[in-house]
């Protein structure tokens, strides 16, 4: 137990948590944008998975940043597909989302087999690249706190910094820019922006594209930093956890950051625990993030319901 505490407080664990949080955070931000525009994006999982595979395959032939952009682009394309079917052809968006998840689960394995000439399920024979860590060791010259800063801030993926910046950027976009107001209005009460001449479907389509792109970016981080290479179903429910994190984060970018950090911390715990307790069953440890998601969802829903009840009580 003491060892566990010591591990959790250490800076190495902090670095692990940042690593496990980054893909989740990117997907959560994607889910947030779609959700706020009134289009629930349940395809985050599939978009992440396709982002993973695209990034891995492109990174074999191109520099890492091209691969990352390709991962982003593949997710965005899937977002566009969603928008086309859900908004133009009026299909139920949840069914469209699950169709994309099913397509991603099968399609990635199929595409990988085609790209490698028959490998089933892992890209072990592909020499894929990794995202380089950001080296901030020059901070060490700061007297006193320098070494601590280096151990905490150095060595993160570029995308971790991008994700942190995106939390701010998305907050600014949503709450300080007219387009963000459009987006929230479309999600809140579509009839009003429609009457004001705002193209509701175009706003939703764009948010689905951005949402997919962010999920794809999360996939790139997962397959080019957390792990290097692709394995079938390597997202392992992260897209669905991100969906829960959107709700848990009270549909706000900062809340999304905190929720993603919470789930990232438990995933980090699941990463370090096998090293500490050799006999702890791996299956039960892998369950932790899912159980935490359910508990958090229930707790959050309970509080939200209480808040609603209080509001109606005070009105009447």
């Amino acid at each position: 137990m003491i060892e566990l505490l010591a591990t959790v407080i250490s800076s190495a664990f902090f670095v692990t948590v940042i690593r496990t949080t980054t893909p989740l955070l990117l997907a959560t931000l994607g889910g947030l944008i779609a959700d706020l525009s009134g289009a629930l994006n349940v395809a985050l999982e599939g978009q992440m998975l396709v982002g993973c595979l695209t990034a891995v395959i492109v990174s074999v032939y191109a520099p890492w940043y091209v691969a990352v952009l390709a991962g982003l682009g593949s997710g965005a394309v899937l977002g566009l597909v969603m928008a086309f079917f859900a908004l133009r052809l009026k299909a139920d968006i949840i069914l469209v989302g699950f169709a994309i998840n099913i397509m991603a689960a099968g399609g990635t394995v199929f595409a990988l087999a085609m790209a490698t000439g028959g490998d089933k399920g892992t890209s072990i024979n592909l020499v894929s690249k990794a995202i380089p860590p950001v080296d901030l060791s020059f901070l060490g010259v700061i007297p006193g706190i320098g070494p601590v800063l280096v151990s905490l801030l150095s060595g993160h993926s570029v995308l971790s910094w991008v994700a942190a910046f995106l939390v701010f950027a998305i907050w600014y976009f949503l709450y300080r820019m007219p387009w963000g107001l459009w987006l929230r209005g479309v999600g809140e009460y579509p009839a009003a922006p429609a009457a004001a001449g705002i193209p509701v479907n175009a706003v939703r389509a764009w948010s689905l594209v951005v949402s997919g792109g962010l999920a794809g970016l999360g996939g790139a981080q997962l397959a080019m930093f957390n792990y290097v290479g692709f394995a079938r179903d390597m997202t392992a429910g992260r897209g669905f956890i991100a969906l829960g994190a959107v709700l848990l984060g009270a549909r706000h970018p900062v809340g999304a950051l905190l929720a993603a950090l919470l789930f990232g911390a438990f995933e980090g715990l699941a990463v370090v625990m096998p090293g500490l307790f050799a006999d702890a069953p791996a299956e039960l440890i892998r369950m932790i993030p899912f159980i935490v998601t359910i508990l958090a969802l229930v707790l959050f829903s309970y509080r939200a319901q209480r808040a609603r009840q209080m509001r109606t009580l005070s009105k009447s």
Partner: peptide, 30 residues
């Protein structure tokens, strides 16, 4: 969870899927 608290049933049912799979893996193994 949905009826009482309004908890989104998509998320909770998907999480229960993963929990059931890991539970099955665990019980089969040990």
């Amino acid at each position: 969870a949905k009826a009482r608290l309004g908890a989104n049933e998509i998320v909770s049912s998907l999480m229960l899927n993963y929990i059931a799979i890991e539970l099955c893996n665990f019980l089969v193994r040990v």
